[in-house]
Design a protein around this nucleic acid. Structure first.
Lengths: 156, 156
DNA sequence: GTATGTGCAAACGGTTTGCAGTCTG
DNA sequence: CAGACTGCAAACCGTTTGCACATAC
């Protein structure tokens, strides 16, 4: 069931999230209430959050957060390589917290229910190697996006 | 050099482009000057054209084309599955004419010079099969986007 | 002749920015 | 206390749309 060529990833990372670990990242110079909040939401979420999601969740916790700040903070987090930005065909842009190096994954999206499943595959690594080897290309990122209909939606 | 796992694709399709072949696609009902022009430009180009590129090229040939028409025509061509839309990380949206079924390919982008190289890989098919098999997922599209620095840019 | 397509300019929606006020270190 | 950060509203920019006119069939 779980082969190196393809396996569904376990993306349930936030089993425990110690409150002290809530230390803000070294982004910019100042650790503000807003940045901590946004950082924490991203870190403790398994989902792929849009800016709007993030904004809504932040406001639910603390109304003193503006949309601009969400944008600005995401931008900093991207720059610091702490979050990854995903751009799907439908133009949705989502953000996910970057887990440790070991956790490289890709996405399968259901075009009907919008659900996103993460998977891992050794093909990615092999392809990376091939591209480097045969073209002298220095690979920075390799993303695989699979879209279609999940079993539930397809049979309905 | 050319293995099923990875090979650079030959995307030089427009070796000859017979003028008669300029028959417009069955998009909408009417075959207009503008639609023919846009269609032809896309068809005869190997590149991945942005809307702006397309607009500029069209105007160079015939100034009586508006940006709205370019957008509307692209939209029709997408719907008719005659062109593919590519959305890269940097938010660039490009369009490429869809070649015959046999020609499935993916993209390698140089983050420095912006060049895009097409490649083919059997891994895509295998992955597709795995996803279908193990998840009962009906795959509509599988896109691989490799970004990094090409040999020339990396050594510079 | 009629419905479809086009050009133009205005509207749209997500993202960015300028600025005055606030807060961190 | 200075400089960094925030909220707000305005600007931006690629894309879409409404409408009057043009054109294909």
């Amino acid at each position: 069931m779980s082969s190196p060529e393809f396996c569904i990833a376990d993306n349930n990372h936030n089993v425990e999230h110690p409150a002290e670990e809530t230390v803000p990242p070294v982004l910019g110079q100042r650790s503000t209430r807003q940045r901590k909040l946004i950082y924490d939401i991203l870190k403790s979420s398994n989902d792929h959050l849009s800016v709007e999601d993030l904004y809504r969740r932040a406001r639910d916790i603390d109304s003193r957060v503006s949309l601009s700040t969400v944008y600005r903070t995401i931008s900093l987090l991207k720059e610091a390589s702490l979050v990854d930005e995903l751009i799907f065909e439908d133009d949705r842009r989502c953000y996910e917290f970057k887990r440790g190096n070991g956790y490289q994954h890709h996405h399968i999206r259901c075009l009907s229910c919008g659900n996103i499943i993460e998977f891992q595959t050794d093909y990615a690594r092999r392809l990376r190697d091939k591209v480097a080897e045969e073209m002298g290309f220095s690979v920075e990122s390799l993303k695989i996006d699979v879209a279609g209909y999940c079993e539930a939606c397809a049979t309905r």
